[in-house]
Amino acid sequence: MNGDYMETIEPTLIVADAGPLIHLDELSALDVLRDYSGIAVPDAVWMEVLHHRPQALEQTNVRLFRQTTPPSSAQIKAITSLYTLHHGEREALSLCLSHSINTLITDDTAARLAAKTLNIKAHGTLGLLIRAVRKNFRTPSEVLSLLSAIPQMTTLHIRPSLLKDVIEKCRIEWKDNL
């Protein structure tokens, strides 16, 4: 779906947790993040991705940059304990607050809950894939194929019946373009 539109770069910085970077790369779809002007990856997340999916950090079509995180505030420490977050999630939330970045990409439920508490928007692999149609980065058919491939090609765990519902909802929304 490249057509002859002019691709725009959103002047938007986001912070990444490991999940979406790993899962999107497993689907060869990390480029759906290409319109973000920068994707800050906290040290702990960088190390996690480096361990599990190093090739994700070598992609040149997205603007990933490693970012050292300042010491966590008392608020973040409390939320980390309350929601049993890992180092990477804690650093990601710290980075959002310290740099006034209001979007976090994560697939972790507890991290999303913590982000909500802190008024930080959180989006995950599924939302980012579906958004790719809205942004004209992928066709509806391509995204439906990617969604269907999640159980076989990725380490993202999602209840099969929920994934089926999501696919069906998208199919209905995009029925005129399939």
């Binding site: 439920t109 999303r112 809950l113 959180a122 989006h123 995950g124 599924l126 939302g127 980012l128 894939l129 579906i130 958004r131 149609v133 809205r134 999602i158 209840r159 929920l162 999501v166 909802k169 998208c170 929304e173």
Partner: peptide
Amino acid sequence: LTESFIQDDVEWGLH
């Protein structure tokens, strides 16, 4: 909670 977040995310992805 997981399901609710995913549904919100799908809605955001679409609209």
